[in-house]
C-alpha cells in the first residue's frame, strides 16, 4: 500500500512536470496604441497591458479601458463615458493562438512573421479576429508586435460622429 502511494505520488509529479515543461513569457506593461485613420488627433496609448505568450503558441492580452491616455482630456472623457462605457465594461481581453508557432525558434535570434487568431472581447462583445505580426528573439529576450484594425460596429461601439474604425498596434516586450 505504501509502495503504491509512493508510486502514484511519483506518477502524479512527473505528469505535472510534463504539463509545466512549456515555457511561458509574460509582461504587465505591454503597450497598445490606436489612431483613427480620418483624424490624427484621435489617438491614445495604454502602457499597462498584461500579456502572456507560451512557446506552444497560446497568447493573451488583457487591458483596462481607463488606462488609455489621450492627448486631449475631453476626448478621453467621451471615449470612457459615451463610446466604450468603461464603468460598465472596464476591461478588454484577447485570447488566441499563433497558428504558425512551429516556425518560431525561441532559441535562435531573429524576427519571425506570425499569424494570430483569437477572440477579442471589447465593450462586452466577443468577436474572432486575425492579425499578422512578428515575434523577435534577441539573446533570449522575446518581443511581439502586431497591427490590426478595430471596426467600431463589430463591437457595438457607437462612435460614428468620430470614426468607423481605428488602427491598433500592440507591442509587448516579455520578461
Amino acid at each position: 500500500m505504501k509502495l503504491f502511494s509512493i508510486l502514484s505520488f511519483i506518477c502524479f509529479f512527473s505528469a505535472n512536470m510534463q504539463l509545466h515543461a512549456q515555457k511561458i513569457y509574460g509582461t504587465r506593461n505591454a503597450k497598445i496604441s490606436f489612431v483613427a485613420p480620418s483624424d490624427d488627433d484621435v489617438k491614445a496609448v495604454n502602457n499597462e497591458v498584461s500579456s502572456r505568450l507560451a512557446d506552444n503558441g497560446a497568447i493573451s492580452f488583457s487591458l483596462l479601458i481607463k488606462g488609455f491616455k489621450f492627448g486631449y482630456a475631453e476626448m478621453q472623457d467621451h471615449f470612457n463615458n459615451e463610446y466604450l462605457e468603461s464603468n460598465k465594461y472596464p476591461r478588454a481581453d484577447f485570447k488566441g493562438t499563433i497558428t504558425n508557432i512551429k516556425e518560431v525558434n525561441f532559441a535562435k535570434n531573429g524576427t519571425y512573421k506570425v499569424t494570430v487568431n483569437g477572440s477579442l472581447t471589447l465593450h462586452g462583445v466577443a468577436k474572432n479576429i486575425a492579425a499578422n505580426g512578428t515575434i523577435t528573439v534577441n539573446n533570449g529576450k522575446i518581443s511581439a508586435l502586431a497591427k490590426f484594425p478595430i471596426i467600431m460596429k463589430d463591437f457595438k461601439i457607437e462612435a460614428s460622429a468620430v470614426t468607423d474604425k481605428v488602427n491598433a498596434e500592440i507591442s509587448a516586450v516579455y520578461q
Partner: peptide, 16 residues
C-alpha cells in the same frame, strides 16, 4: 495615482 482597474490573475493598475 489613479486606479484604472483589475486584471484577474495579474494585477491592479494605478497610473499617472
Amino acid at each position: 495615482g489613479i486606479c484604472t482597474g483589475y486584471i484577474p490573475d495579474a494585477n491592479v493598475v494605478i497610473n499617472e
